[in-house]
């Protein structure tokens, strides 16, 4: 039995499914379609579940202009994602100084100001196997801070954080049930945060 093409499909594809299947976004031939759709799936997750903004897919390295091992994402989280323990000490000291400087009548709370920073995101699937070699290749292809895009020109004068001395990516691992976990990976020996 043949179905006329006008008939609606029995189940409407979800927005995510149609996004991933969008041929316009997949038209770039630099990487396998599976890696592209993985990046798009995580972009969707970051944008709608974690309220990230300024998300972009990078297929080529901003350092060497060679194709990256796989498409990476960059974006701006709603809050600061990572504070180095030494920076945290300094921020706390500053906040304490400001609290003491305020008049006694004002609210007496410690306000730590840490502006959000743009982050690299490395999309992976849980079923994949990785090696140190591949991880090193990813780090070799990226800059310390993701490049600014023309569309986000308004915030160009954001000061560079002097504590951000080592490359880092957010390792996003997605399982087959579309659960995503996020881990911060630093390039080098970086002491842990004291949460």
């Amino acid at each position: 039995m043949t179905r006329p093409g006008l008939l609606k499909p029995a189940v409407q594809p979800s927005p995510l499914q149609s996004l991933v299947a969008d041929s316009n976004l997949l038209s770039k031939q630099s990487h396998l379609p599976s890696l592209h759709s993985l990046a798009l799936q995580l972009q969707h997750n970051l944008q709608y579940q974690h309220s990230w903004t300024d998300l972009h897919v990078h297929t080529h390295s901003p350092v060497t202009n060679e194709p990256l091992p796989r498409p990476l994402l960059s974006g701006l989280p709603p809050q600061r994602l990572y504070i180095h323990p030494d920076e945290q000490i300094e921020l706390l000291k500053n906040a304490d100084r400001e609290r003491k400087a305020r008049k006694a009548g004002d609210k007496d709370t410690l306000e730590v100001k840490a502006e959000p920073e743009r982050e690299w995101v490395l999309p992976t699937r849980l079923s994949e196997k990785w090696t140190l070699h591949r991880l090193a290749d990813v780090f070799n292809g990226i800059s310390k801070i993701p490049p600014e895009h023309a569309s986000s020109g308004a915030e160009e004068e954001r000061a560079v954080n002097p504590w951000r001395t080592k490359k880092r990516v957010v390792l996003a691992t997605v399982d087959t049930d579309s659960t995503v976990v996020y881990y911060i990976v630093h390039d080098g020996v970086v002491k842990p945060r004291q949460n």
Binding site: K129, T131, L132, L171, T173, P192, N195
Partner: peptide, 28 residues
């Protein structure tokens, strides 16, 4: 690990989660 030795991402997730739970970082 060896340079080209394959490891499961689940090990990274497990090690990272355990390390963070005890205020440490997982280092490979």
């Amino acid at each position: 690990l060896d340079w080209d030795e394959e490891f499961e991402l689940l090990d990274i997730v497990g090690g990272g989660r355990l390390g963070t739970g005890v205020k440490k970082a997982y280092l490979i």
